[in-house]
Simulated assay, not measured.
Amino acid sequence: MNQRICLFPGSFDPLTLGHVDIIERAMHLFDRLVIGIGSNSSKQAMFSVEQRAEWIRQVFIKEPKVSVQVYKGLTVDFCKEIDARYILRGIRYVSDFEYERAIADMNRSLAPELETIFLTSSAQHATISSTLVRDVIRNGGNARQFLPEAVQY
């Protein structure tokens, strides 16, 4: 039997409640959900890859379907490496969809066997982004209301 393996790629810098919401809702759709921390050349990370991976492990420690891996290079190549047939992306706003659609189209051109699945954010998490959370942290604010309990900074 073929397992339905899905990759949820991102920087997760840091993991937010918005990410957790998408992951928890997607867990029931797939046999395995790999949270892939990818290198994004256009982003400067605030937290180390090791720290981000550890936070994800701690948040999902009781979820055997969820794992975390760090990867470099093209997402479609990493999908092939882990036998994932699906890529999961979270959508907050229409602008997210336009950007994510372009990436999904490119991925489909590179690897037609992959499907991108979009899940929309729950209303209470739609305004949370890692970028905004990093800005709050950099400026000395308390961002705990946007983060899972395991994410300590």
Rank of each mutant, 00 (worst) to 15 (best):
E113S: 15
I61L: 13
D21F: 01
A102I: 01
G18Q: 02
H125T: 13
H19N: 07
E81F: 00
S41N: 12
G38T: 09
R89A: 09
D21S: 11
E81Y: 01
S95D: 10
C79Q: 01
I91T: 03
M46P: 02
A26S: 14
K65D: 04
S42A: 15
P64W: 11
A102L: 06
F30T: 08
F118D: 10
W55R: 03
D96C: 07
S95K: 12
A45C: 10
D77S: 14
C79I: 10
Q44P: 13
L17M: 09
I117Q: 07
E98F: 07
M106A: 12
Q44F: 10
R92Y: 01
Q51R: 12
A102R: 10
I91E: 00
A45E: 01
E115L: 06
T120G: 15
G10F: 00
I87W: 09
S41I: 09
S109Q: 11
F30M: 08
E98G: 11
D105A: 07
V70K: 03
A53W: 06
N107E: 00
L7R: 02
V94W: 11
L7W: 03
Y99Q: 05
K72E: 14
R32Y: 14
L29Q: 09
V66G: 03
S48N: 01
D77C: 13
L33G: 01
A102M: 09
E113C: 11
D105N: 12
G90N: 02
K62Q: 12
S130W: 04
Y71R: 05
S67G: 10
F60W: 12
C6T: 07
A104F: 10
L114T: 02
R32K: 15
R101W: 11
T75A: 12
N40K: 14
Q44N: 15
E54R: 05
T131N: 07
D13G: 06
G73E: 01
S129C: 12
K43T: 03
F8D: 11
T116L: 02
Q69W: 04
S39R: 15
Y93N: 15
V59D: 06
T120V: 15
A53T: 09
Q58W: 08
A111C: 12
D105V: 06
V76A: 05
S67E: 10
V68L: 09
P14C: 05
D31E: 09
K62H: 07
I82D: 09
A102T: 05
R134H: 13
D105Q: 13
Q69F: 08
M106I: 13
M106Q: 11
E81K: 05
F30A: 14
G10D: 00
V66R: 00
K65F: 11
V49Q: 09
I61R: 14
I103N: 02
N40A: 12
I82H: 06
L132G: 11
I23N: 03
V76L: 02
G73V: 03
I56Q: 03
V20F: 05
S11Y: 06
Y71K: 00
V133K: 05
Q124T: 09
G73N: 05
V68N: 02
I37D: 04
L17H: 08
G73D: 02
G36I: 07
R89Y: 08
R52W: 11
K43A: 08
K43Y: 05
F78I: 05
V76E: 03
H125R: 08
Q44A: 14
F47M: 11
L110R: 03
D31C: 07
S42Y: 15
F97Y: 10
E24T: 14
E24F: 15
E100D: 09
Y71Q: 02
D83W: 01
Q124C: 13
